[in-house]
Amino acid sequence: MKVAYYPGCVAQESGKELDIATRAVAKILGIELVDFPNFSCCGSGFIDEANQTLNVALNGRNLAIAEKASMDVVMTVCSTCQGMLAHAKHTLAKDPVVRKRSDETLTKIGYRYQGTATPKHLMQIIVENLGGAEKLRPYVKRPLTGVKVAAFYGCHILRPHDIMEFDDPEDPHYFEDIIRVIGAEPVYYRGRVMCCGFPIQFVKPATAERIAGKQIQEAKRHGADTMATPCPLCHISLDNYQKEAGRAVGEELDMPVLHFPQLLGLAFGLDPKDLGLPRHLADTTGLVEKLSRVAVPA
């Protein structure tokens, strides 16, 4: 299938490994990624706090760019981008006042938003377009046997449910289904649907880090070898700020945190280096060593 690829800011800058892993995995899965160098930032929830109409129009433009190229699916790899694009689509459909202001503005720059393109996270595409977790089985070259993976969903892919329309908002299972199919063992813990603390990292770092610390600590108590997340902002909180999070909860956490496409890539037999694992701040060598004991057939 062919999708408009919306990598989001982080995957294009400090979290480049997410983009690298996404491209590698999409190629294997036969998802053709069409790049649009004119996509703008989704606003990350922050622009929405300052000006809703502006935020909706920015994302209306993003969706209209895909529509102009006759693309039905805009593929995201970030729970927050997914949340913001879906919010914009929802608001444009339900709020005539914002819709009018957005339409008037987009007309001035030569776009017409029609509502035909749907934003979908890669995880959602696997579930809804490729036919579900089971369809990944033929691609698994290195089953992650014996590896315990703690899924960390990232709020905006799940909630609010009436806008996101994906999985159960407090009790999801799609990520764990995928973890099972790639041969690993899912870890069930409450933090998997909780917030990572990222939205207030710049407002009150001590609280943000305590929140991140609690989730990592809980994953660890449940025996996780690694965490994995479909959101690069969660990745920043859980990986980049893991040392600080550990200090906040008084424990050396030492927990590898994978991006969702990296987890798939490892199971598909790709080299951890080619998936950008050395770029993480939390050490992944223990995890990679564990994986190296699983032979990849030539």
Binding site: G45, R159, P160, M194, G197, P199, I200
Partner: peptide
Amino acid sequence: WLCLRCNMCVE
């Protein structure tokens, strides 16, 4: 500004 926008309360 301490709200995380996690939407747990909405659910």
